[in-house]
Each structure stands twice: as C-alpha cells, then as structure tokens.
C-alpha cells in the first residue's frame, strides 16, 4: 500500500531512510523487513529498487537469502580515517555555530526536565 505523500517523496529521501534502517538493524534485512521498518509504508517494489540502487553505489552489501537478498550497510574500508575526521570535528566546539546540530548539550537540570517531559508524555 502506498499513500499519496509517499509518492511525492523524492527518491533521495527514501534512500536515506532505507540506509538508516539498515544501519539501525545490525543484521542483514530483506526488502520485506526494510519495508516494515519504514514509517511511511512505501511500496515493496520501491523498497527493492532503492536497495538495489544502494547496492549498485556500493553503500549496501547483500547476500542470498531464500529466493531474494538480505541487505546490510557497508563499512567504508578506511573507517579509521572517518573516525579521525570525526574526532577532529568534535574538538572544535565552535562548529555548532555554522553546523546546525540536532541537539545542543544538556545541563543536569535540562536532563531532569527532559525526562519529566518524556514521562508526562508517556502517561
């Protein structure tokens, strides 16, 4: 089943969503499992096409499973370089000024407040 919103969704956004699902899973996933994990219920064929495209780009690997494939994210070979770049970024606290970060750091009071808000939300 495909909803109208999903058809308007650019292919790039779907690729991003699919890749995130693969990374979050930790084990290889079949297209059906990826489809189930995506929140906006895209068509199975769309998911399969997207996974094949990620595989073509070398971002996802796959192995035979039953009649189809199970996909997993590919770690880039020089993963250490990425890690080093990342710690370099981490060192410059100033970067949050142009690199708009999702969340700023929290004070202990902020943490307590957030937990309270989440708890209140769940009740």
């Amino acid at each position: 089943m495909t909803n109208a919103k999903d058809e308007r969704r650019p292919a790039g956004e779907l690729e991003a969503g699919v890749l995130a699902v693969l990374w979050a899973a930790g084990t290889p996933l079949t297209p059906a499992e990826v489809q189930a994990a995506l929140p906006h219920d895209p068509a199975r064929t769309t998911v399969t096409t997207t996974l094949a495209r990620l595989h073509d780009k070398g971002i996802a690997g796959r192995r035979r499973q039953g009649r189809g494939y199970a996909y997993f994210p590919v770690q880039d070979a020089p993963g250490l370089t990425a890690l080093r770049m990342h710690s370099e970024l981490e060192r410059d606290a100033d970067r949050e000024t142009v690199l708009a970060r999702f969340v700023a750091h929290l004070s202990p009071d902020d943490e307590r407040l957030l937990r309270d808000l989440l708890d209140a939300e769940e009740q």
Binding site: G12, A16, L19, A20, I59, P73, G79, H86, E90, L99
Partner: peptide, 17 residues
C-alpha cells in the same frame, strides 16, 4: 557515496547535524 542527502558516520557518539 551519498544515499540521497544522507551521510552516515560510524561513530559511538550520538550526533547529527
């Protein structure tokens, strides 16, 4: 290579920007 506009960094630190 980009998956759409997404770049995933393999790191133990939760971060997004």
């Amino acid at each position: 290579p980009a998956a759409g506009d997404l770049c995933i960094v393999d790191s133990p630190r939760p971060d997004a920007y």
